[in-house]
């Protein structure tokens, strides 16, 4: 049955090469923990990806309940956490996953750094990686405000003030982040938009480039 569908599609679209490229690449011995346990350091990139997928899925479920306005945001999170079946798990996964993804990405960066994997010809992928790092921190910063509790409000207040203290462009950044003169309804709405649409879009695009470059260049050789 599946075979027939596949063949039907393949005849028309020649989909073989698409997935073959992903499926058939060899995993060399020096990055395979089954052969050298210490090669687990090569798993951190994949783990970052895995947790990113968890973040995206749990985040999608969160938006089924979350209401991005200052009157209802807190109540909607509280309701999700306390009343909705599995709400604790959905919010918990997104909350703890946000920390975990940073940890994994940090470890991945260290692996790449200490194995000198950023050297020619992989300079571009290192730069793409740094951009990914920034996008992740941006996701952390904007997501922190969304529950609209005391911690969220005051941490963002401080973060925005620090951004505002930057010479020359500071005040513009501050107004851009707040969406006005006060940290309030506008701020929450735009943090939500940035957290849920803008940054994930950029993240997915960058991850796509990251992976294409890895497939193109292959993983760096053994030390």
């Amino acid at each position: 049955m599946f075979r027939r569908i596949y063949q039907w599609l393949d005849e028309r679209l020649n989909i073989g090469p698409l997935w073959r490229d992903l499926a058939d690449h060899e995993v060399p011995e020096h990055v395979n923990p089954a052969h050298h346990f210490s090669a687990f350091v090569y798993c951190f990139g994949g783990l970052t990806f895995f947790i990113t997928v968890i973040q995206i899925l749990s985040g999608m479920f969160l938006t089924m309940y979350y209401v991005p306005d200052i009157l209802n945001a807190y109540q909607s999170v509280k309701y999700l956490q306390n009343e909705v079946a599995f709400g604790v798990i959905v919010r918990g996964m997104h909350h703890w996953g946000a920390s975990l993804v940073i940890v994994m990405m940090f470890l991945h960066t260290l692996r790449v750094f200490f194995t000198g994997a950023y050297k020619s010809p992989r300079e571009m992928n290192w730069v793409v990686g740094m951009l990914l790092f920034f996008v992740m921190l941006g996701l952390g910063f904007t997501g922190y405000l969304l529950p609209w509790d005391q911690k969220a409000y005051w941490a963002t207040q401080v973060g925005v003030k620090i951004a505002g203290s930057v010479p020359l462009i500071g005040p513009y950044i501050e107004t851009f982040l707040k969406g006005g003169d006060v940290l309030g309804a506008q701020t929450l709405a735009r943090f939500f938009a940035i957290h849920v649409f803008f940054l994930p879009g950029v993240l997915l695009a960058l991850m796509g480039v990251h992976f294409i470059l890895i497939r193109r260049q292959g993983i760096s050789g053994p030390l």
Binding site: G140, Q150, W154
Partner: peptide
């Protein structure tokens, strides 16, 4: 990971109160 999320529900403090300037703010740990 699922067990962890159930054992430690994510924190939620009191609703934001812009007038409470005595609150000691703290960003996320990273």
């Amino acid at each position: 990971f699922l067990v962890l999320t159930m054992a430690h529900p994510s924190p939620l403090e009191a609703p934001a109160n812009p007038n409470d300037t005595s609150y000691t703010p703290l960003p996320d740990w990273y």
